[in-house]
Simulated assay, not measured.
Amino acid sequence: MDVLSDAVAAMRTGHPHSSRTVNSGSWGVRFPPSEGAGFHVVVQGTAWLVPPDGGEGRTEPVELRSGDVVLLPHGTGHGLAGRPDAPLVDAVRAPDGSWPTPPDRAPAGAAETLLLCGAYQVRRARAHPLFTELPPYVHIPARVGAHPRLRAAVDLLGAELADPQPGSDALVPALLDTLLVLLLRTWWLAERPDRTTGWSAALSDPAVTAALRAIHADPARPWTVEELGVEGGLSRAAFARRFTTLVGRPPLAYLTWWRMTTAGRMLRTDDTPLRTVAQRAGYASEFAFAKAFKREYGTAPGQYRKASARA
């Protein structure tokens, strides 16, 4: 798997949910902080995002136009309204976990705003830096001819929510997961203004990307810095400097972190024997693995598995 796919798989948990709402008149909704990551798509009309805690140094509302997409990756509270000064009404979860909007009391003929809103359940304990480096909100404005795959996913999701067909219960969660990957890809590779540092630069750098792909494809391999440099076509010293600058940690430190993250996911999600988990994490013995795991997680692998099963 590539690094973006792995990052999403490591964090995603449970089932995503979404809803299609029509609002008109003077409407406004306040979404409280949550453990998940939320999104809003303006299908028709306009809306205003009240940023979480003045995201990106902003305190004023942000206008969202038809086709705009917003991702709230860190579960921070925020507002959504029909006009920038509209009063906000607290959203209350529906039985399925979605966030319905308050009943519309607008006069007949008022302009309507059609929204697709939803949320993902995520595990933040060992979030990949691809997630932790995201700003409080990611705004991807609609532009003619831009991001056709993202637009296609939005259109398909909107159609399934507006007119459910046989198989929609299976298709909608898959489309939601597709939308999340496309949102992240679009932000990191196309929309982020500063692509000279951090993960935006790392994913755009051929040498670093090649090394990351090698690590994620075979984390159990006893990689050396020199071997990873060969993957990227650089000398050992040049590669180590570039990788550390862009990724934020040295190559072998990232390798260890990813091995432990992968091991933790295996312990949470299946009953793979500890010996096999240790081997897949690149350790020759259960003892060495258990020692490294406890250093990272503060608990033994077996205890971590039992605690995850109870959660």
Score class of each variant (00 low, 15 high):
L4V: 13
V8Y: 01
G14M: 01
H15E: 15
P16D: 06
T21E: 15
N23C: 15
R30H: 14
F31Y: 13
E35M: 03
E35F: 05
A37W: 03
H40C: 11
V43Q: 10
G45T: 09
T46F: 08
T46C: 10
D53V: 04
G55K: 04
T59Y: 08
P61K: 05
V62N: 04
L64I: 09
D68N: 02
V69P: 00
L71G: 05
P73A: 11
G75M: 04
T76C: 09
T76W: 11
H78F: 15
L80E: 07
L80K: 00
G82L: 04
P84S: 09
D90Y: 04
A94I: 03
A94G: 07
P95T: 06
P95N: 03
D96F: 02
T101D: 13
P103T: 12
A106F: 07
P107Q: 11
G109F: 05
L115H: 01
L116N: 00
L116I: 15
G118V: 05
A119R: 12
A119P: 00
Q121W: 02
V122H: 01
R126E: 13
R126L: 13
H128M: 06
L130I: 09
E133T: 15
E133I: 05
P136I: 05
V138Q: 06
I140P: 01
R143C: 06
V144E: 14
R149L: 15
A152D: 13
V154N: 02
V154S: 00
L157G: 03
L161T: 04
L161W: 03
D163I: 02
Q165G: 08
Q165T: 14
S168E: 10
D169K: 03
L175K: 06
L176H: 04
L176N: 03
L176E: 13
T178R: 11
L180C: 02
W188Q: 07
L189Q: 11
R192V: 15
T196E: 15
W199E: 10
P206M: 08
P206L: 10
A207C: 03
D218A: 14
A220I: 07
T224L: 06
E226S: 14
L228V: 08
L228N: 09
V230D: 15
S235R: 12
A237P: 00
A238K: 08
A240S: 15
T244G: 12
V247P: 01
V247T: 09
V247S: 05
R249S: 15
L252Y: 10
A253Q: 14
A253H: 12
L255P: 01
T256M: 13
W257K: 01
M260R: 03
R268F: 00
R268Y: 00
D270P: 00
T276P: 00
A281R: 01
G282K: 02
Y283K: 01
E286R: 10
F287H: 12
A288N: 11
A288F: 04
F289C: 04
Y297A: 03
G298N: 05
T299Q: 09
G302S: 08
Q303F: 01
K306A: 14
A307R: 14
S308E: 13
S308R: 03
S308L: 02
A309N: 03
